[in-house]
């Protein structure tokens, strides 16, 4: 029973990490259709933002809380820069975008290595986030609880922006029918740029959170980018709620399989489940019905 609970917690926690890493991608890949391989490097940039913030402000607690908005800003600005210089020229050319952004991802990794050095750096966790919290009969590491709450806040914030603000309405309008949106006077250019800013900014927040769990190094992003794409593909293009369900589903599956087999086998089994699922439902859990011709 104890094992069941701790695995349930492990699965939910893994799900929240996947969700945080994939949320920005759900926006840029899911809504705009841009395959951005450099998304992982925006996550890495967020992690290094947390590192630099801690170098400036020694207090681990304050610097972490401050790093979250800063990470959003750094990730977002990098995203806008990439969008304005390269991706803008390549809408509707998915293969070229994939190759170009992959190249950008390699450049960013090497840049991080040159700026911060090849060895990993350490971001200290504040004292209130080390150790565990007792919930029911099981213990939950405080850092994982914090990430779960951060993921929930990010989802809530993003849904709010999409549902209730003029910007959100414009984004949804452009996603559902780009030509019609343009005809009624929405600037698709600036909407694209803002969407990209938010999506990349969310990657920056994910990067700040990940410093609590793993290593902060130049290759940090590469370990999450594939899982993030899987979450978006399984969840269904263009739907935030799909990504939420997919992230927790995959997290729980991984934790369950890993407990009964090994980490490597569990990964294989999760992939098999995804392949079978996509055979039955190629459009993912949810899909947007649109009248657009594209």
């Amino acid at each position: 029973m104890q094992a069941l609970y701790s695995q349930l917690v492990a699965g939910i926690s893994l799900g929240s990490i996947l969700l945080l890493a994939a949320l920005g991608l759900a926006l840029t890949f899911g809504q705009m259709g841009v395959i951005n391989m450099a998304h992982g490097e925006f996550i890495m940039a967020g992690s290094y933002t947390a590192f630099v913030t801690q170098r400036v402000i020694a207090d681990a607690g304050i610097s972490l809380l401050l790093a979250i908005p800063l990470g959003f800003l750094v990730g977002g600005l990098m995203g806008v820069l990439l969008e304005a210089t390269l991706i803008r020229r390549m809408y509707h050319r998915p293969l070229d975008t994939l190759l170009v952004t992959w190249g950008v991802s390699l450049i960013l990794q090497q840049a991080a290595r040159d700026i911060f050095g090849a060895p990993n750096v350490d971001v200290r966790a504040p004292s209130w986030l080390s150790g565990s919290v007792n919930i029911g009969i099981t213990q939950v590491p405080a850092a994982r609880l914090f990430i779960l709450m951060l993921a929930a806040a990010a989802v809530a914030g993003l849904s709010l922006v999409l549902k209730a603000t003029p910007l959100g309405r414009r984004i949804r309008g452009v996603v559902q029918n780009r030509d019609l949106a343009e005809t009624v006077g929405i600037s698709t250019r600036s909407t694209d740029r803002l969407t990209f800013f938010i999506g990349s900014g969310l990657a920056g927040i994910a990067g700040v959170a990940l410093t609590l769990l793993g290593s902060t190094g130049p290759t940090l992003g590469t370990s999450y980018i594939v899982d993030a794409f899987l979450v978006v593909v399984v969840g269904g293009i263009g739907q935030i709620k799909g990504s939420v369900i997919a992230a927790f589903g995959l997290g729980l599956l991984q934790a369950t399989f890993e407990y009964s087999t090994t980490a490597s086998i569990a990964k294989v089994m999760v992939f098999v489940v995804i392949v079978v699922f996509l055979q039955i439902r190629p459009q993912g859990i949810f899909s947007v019905r649109t009248r657009s011709l594209a």
Partner: peptide, 9 residues
């Protein structure tokens, strides 16, 4: 690999 919660459990 970066998620060790199951292995540590």
């Amino acid at each position: 690999y970066t998620d060790f919660s199951t292995i540590v459990n």
